[in-house]
Nucleic acid binder design. Structure first.
Lengths: 139, 139
DNA sequence: ATTATAATTGATAAAAATTACCATGTGGGT
DNA sequence: ACCCACATGGTAATTTTTATCAATTATAAT
């Protein structure tokens, strides 16, 4: 009666996508992941990558992080943590700042929305871009 | 020597875009704003709206909020505040939770990035979507 | 094992959102 | 009134993502 196992079948392509995503701590976009996966599965289609990333995100196996920038990014670490994005190159890293659980309580009191979660995104300039900026002084 | 007034000329279209944005507390997307502005300036082009929203965001007159969802949104209130986005309809509202300035200090200690700022985005279900969900019980 | 049944894939097309391009128009300063 | 730089509107091109669908592959039933 109640829908049982949503049962996501672990196909070869899904497994490899998952493995490649778990390998890195950067937060690759779908097409970055596509390039990574293609080295092991040259015939895979970009659509398959998108489709499966979405499925896995829906089923909670991975995280789809919708931060600034033009592309969505994915993360194999599913427990809540915060991110920092470089304003220049767009790279996204994890940042080790304690998660503030009280925020959800505070938010619940401040709105009529039913709160599901929260996310903190820092903006900054990564060390690589800091260096490059000093390279060319006054533009 | 040092670049003087970046000097953004306040054209009619810019003024009206700004006025329309300031009128609402929702956080319209570029095309929503386009529709609003077109009522007063029927010949304006969508490109002009995009171009000027970007310019105004760069010069700090308005805020470009890059949250979840497929479209960027804009906000006439430039002092830092947090947002909540409906997971179902995608609507974005302000949420009145105190801004945590310490976060930036904490972040600075935890990363090699040069921190520029931070943003908190809550996810939830807005009251409208809560009601509609109860409407159709077991699908 | 063999067939039936359902889910998944790869390829391609389509959609959605944004940006780039460029000839024409506009306004401010002299 | 005449420059001149900037801005505009219209359109085309890009970028990112989603949809479609026939062919393939896996699972279940016999």
């Amino acid at each position: 009666m109640n829908a049982p196992t949503p049962m996501i079948r672990l196909t070869t392509q899904r497994q490899i996508i998952l493995e490649e995503l778990a390998k890195v701590t950067t937060h690759p976009t779908a097409s970055e992941l596509y390039d990574m996966v293609r080295k092991r599965l040259p015939r895979i289609g970009l659509g398959t990558v998108y489709r499966n990333l979405d499925l896995m995100a829906e089923s909670g196996m991975i995280l789809k992080i919708e931060v600034g920038g033009t592309q969505k990014r994915f993360d194999a670490t599913t427990d809540n943590h915060y991110h920092i994005r470089c304003a220049i190159c767009g790279k996204v890293d994890d940042i080790d700042v304690p998660v503030i659980e009280e925020l959800v309580t505070q938010a619940a009191a401040a709105t009529s929305y039913h709160i599901l979660g929260h996310h903190v995104e820092f903006t900054g300039i990564c060390s690589t871009c800091q260096k490059e900026r000093h390279g060319k002084a006054a533009s």
